[in-house]
Computed example of a mutant assay.
Amino acid sequence: MFKKTSTLCMILLLGASLAACGGNNKANNAAAPAGNATTPTTEAKTETGYAPKELKVQFVPSQNAETLEAKTKPLEKLLGDQLNIPVHVTVSPDYNTIVEALSSKQVDVGFLPPNAYVLAHDLRQSADLLLQAQRFGVKDETGEPTEEKVDFYKAMIIVKKDSDIKSIKDLKGKKIGWQDVTSSAGYVFPAAEMKKAGIDPDTDVQGITIKGHDAAIMALLNGQVDAVAIFQDARNTVKKDVPDVFEQTRAIHFTTPIPNDTISVRSDMSQEWREKISQAFIAITEDPEGAQIVKDIYTHVGYEVGDDSNFTPVREYAEAVGQKIK
């Protein structure tokens, strides 16, 4: 049984130890932090910050990592062509690993969701906001995308169509599938809103960690859990394999809007290279080929210059579930 309180304590303890030793979660050969753990990122120090001679980029996929490994190569080439330096894009097993990799300077650029960005920026002071992603909006009723690019999304809690769970208050005593506790859509925002409704996500439900929103949906369909917290509308990620997924499930709750994911850079990156990297990502999404690659990897359809004040609600929700960010 997943015990959220224990997990949060472990993360807080890890946060302290990571600052000293640079480790976090388990990784394997297919999903390891970028760069060798004993070799710092190749870089040239300047008076105004670090200028990478090769750029190391890392992200956590919202779906099966194995299906995305091959898609990172085209992104490496596109970024390399824009920046005129070698680029290495790798997949991380979780966001805490990216935060630590940025802190230990093993990674230069991280795709960080809102809560992981706040953790890296506020608590670890190891990353700065560069860009905020844009996605197409999603219709609550159908899960279909709109034609409007937006800088926010929602989390949702879904159950099977024939479930007796009608609202989040009915989750008491049920099994719910969470993502990592730093996942904004997969834990923080749904858990905070459960607390507002009088349901303690630590003690009133049996939480089970599931890696990947697509895997969470499959766990729900297979009867392993009674409900899952996912980003809106992650059901589209399994529609190819389960065409009637929308008919088999229904949403019982949508959260308040969540700021879209960030592209964050290590905090000592030079201003010159911050601008180069920003321009490179924006240029890639303005090209049809590049836009499709980025969309396939991370469902982003564009980027805009980030504003840290957009993440104030994220800080408030993190505190609501007991996460230390300062």
Rank of each mutant, 00 (worst) to 15 (best):
A32R: 11
V321F: 15
N25H: 10
S6E: 15
A34S: 10
V150D: 12
E47F: 12
T5K: 14
R135N: 13
N236T: 13
A219I: 06
Q224P: 01
H213Y: 15
A65K: 08
A127P: 05
L129Y: 15
K56I: 07
G80P: 06
D307Q: 12
W273M: 13
D108K: 14
E141P: 00
V245L: 01
G290E: 00
P257L: 04
V118M: 12
K77D: 15
I217P: 02
G290R: 02
Y95E: 06
A19F: 05
K211V: 14
L83M: 08
A70V: 00
A27C: 08
V301S: 06
K56Y: 12
V91Q: 12
K239D: 04
Y95C: 00
A51C: 11
S270C: 02
Y95P: 01
N29F: 00
N84W: 00
L221E: 05
P86T: 06
Y187H: 14
T146A: 03
T48R: 06
L171T: 05
F111P: 00
L102M: 13
K166R: 14
K77Y: 03
G290I: 01
V150F: 07
D180Y: 14
K169W: 09
K174G: 06
Q134A: 11
K196V: 08
A20C: 06
D108R: 14
D170T: 02
N28E: 11
E66C: 00
H253N: 07
Q132S: 15
I210E: 02
A51H: 12
K240T: 15
F59K: 09
P114L: 07
D170P: 04
E76H: 09
E316L: 08
